[in-house]
Each structure stands twice: as structure tokens, then as C-alpha cells.
Design a protein around this nucleic acid. Sequence first.
DNA 1: TAAGCGTGGTA
DNA 2: TTACCAAGCTT
Length: 279
Amino acid sequence: MLQQTRVGAVLEHYRRFLRRFPTVQKLAAARESSILAAWSGLGYYRRARMMHAAAKVIVKEQAGRFPASAEQLSALPGIGRYTAAAIASIAFDEPTAVVDGNVKRVLRRLVADNLSDELLWETAQELLTQARPGDFNQAMMELGATICLPRQPRCSVCPVYEQCDSRGSLPKPKTLGRQNKRMIHYALDCHNGSVFLVRRPKDASLMPGMWELPEIPGANGVSPWLTLRHSITVTDYQVAVSQVSASDQSDGKWISKGRLARLPLTGLARKILRAAKLI
DNA sequence: TAAGCGTGGTA
DNA sequence: TTACCAAGCTT
């Protein structure tokens, strides 16, 4: 859950997720839609699918025993170099350094050089406190998250200021492309305690198989019931929601209010249904 | 190597 | 308001 996602955004989902899937066996046996429903709103849904796949490998091929080394962990789906090192060092005391976005920034400032990825990993490994690798790794990430901030580093309270070659300066990050903007209209078709929802195609690149409100053509002259902003990857959406019938023109399903929570909704659909006090 | 993948917080 | 960016991974 923490891959590219802040701790604050994860906490509530994490607790709910562990209540729902308390063991790797339960997770492995679950249906994908149940897992996606618990993940709904967190984004990067591929992470959930891959964690499901990893749970199945652990249960079926390794008798439910977790791999305990970074090398073995990185063989699991969805576990790359960072996550393997994080689990191995924090959970199993393996002396392996992590490099995440925070550590990259800290190290590049510390040595005042735009180190390549490979050099960053080597440097982190050299600095690692062998006796307490998990604590060291978490301290490095925490330093980046709380003091060595991207925009305004708090050098005056930094514990390694004396050893820092740059004292806070950092090569200007290259600016990314501007976000696309788009207007999109949805129908909120709701009666008898049910909402009409549609399912995204299984082969969609974005959020495949997840449920959302039916999209409708806009500009019918009627002002929408609700407007909001929502950004998905590289697109900023201006969203308009109208309470109109859509069940005749869209291939979807009526979902009763009580079942909404168990459905893998997109984050945007969840936001709209919450605004409508349906969940 | 670089693009694609979600969403929310922050300045 | 806009733009950046977060405990990255896969293809």
C-alpha cells in the first residue's frame, strides 16, 4: 500500500484491509473483487492484484511461509527492489539498504551530486548501520519525509547538517508535462434504494473491471446536480453529475445501497456516491 | 529507458 | 489554482 502512497493515505485502508484479510491464507483464498473493494480509493489497483497473486504463491508453493530474504521476496509479484529490501530489513533484520524517493533526495543533497540510481543504492548500502538495518532505513526515509523536504528543507534542525555537502540546495527537478484537462459528465440514476452502475472493461488499461457511474454526453442545458474536480494520473477532470436516467442507454447493473461497500468502485465513483450520501 | 498506473495533500 | 510528489513496479 505504501508504494508511491503517503502513510496518511494508507492508514485507514490498512486497518480495514487487515480486518478483512487477517492471514495470507484468507487473502489468497479471497476473490479479486473483494480485494479490490477493500482497496477502493487507494489507487494503483495493480498493486492489489499483484499482492493477491503473491499471496497465492506463498500459500500454494511455500506452505504459507513468507520468504525471509530480499532476494526471495523480490521474486514475488509486485515486490521490487525497494519493497524487498524494506521487508527484509524491517521484518527480518537483513542488512539491506532501501532507496525510495525520500532516500534519493537525502543522498543527493548529502553528497551534492546527481547520483545515478545504481550509485544511490551503493551509497545507501555503504551508509547502512548493519546492527539495526530496519531502524536505519526507516530513519533515512523519515529524514526525507519530515526534514529534508523537497521544496523547503529544514536544514536548521537537520541532524546531519554538518556532514551535508549541499546544505539544502538541489538541482532543479525537471518539470513534468502539464496535466490534461477534461470535462466529463456522469449520470446518477438512483431509485428504490438502488444505483445504476457500469463496469469498466476487463481489458481497460485504467482500472479494469472496476465499477463507476455511467458516463453521459454533456451540454444539455441543465445545470448539474453536483460538480467536483478529480485528477486521475495525468488528467484533471472537471466532473459534472446529473440525476438523470441512464439505465436505458448503458450496459450496467442496478446495485442496492447495501452492496455498494463490497463493490470495487473507482475512487471517483466512491467520491460521488459519498457526496450523494449513498455510502 | 521511459511510459503508464490513482489519488490526495500541500504550498 | 496549479504543479508537484508520495515507504514504486511492470512492461
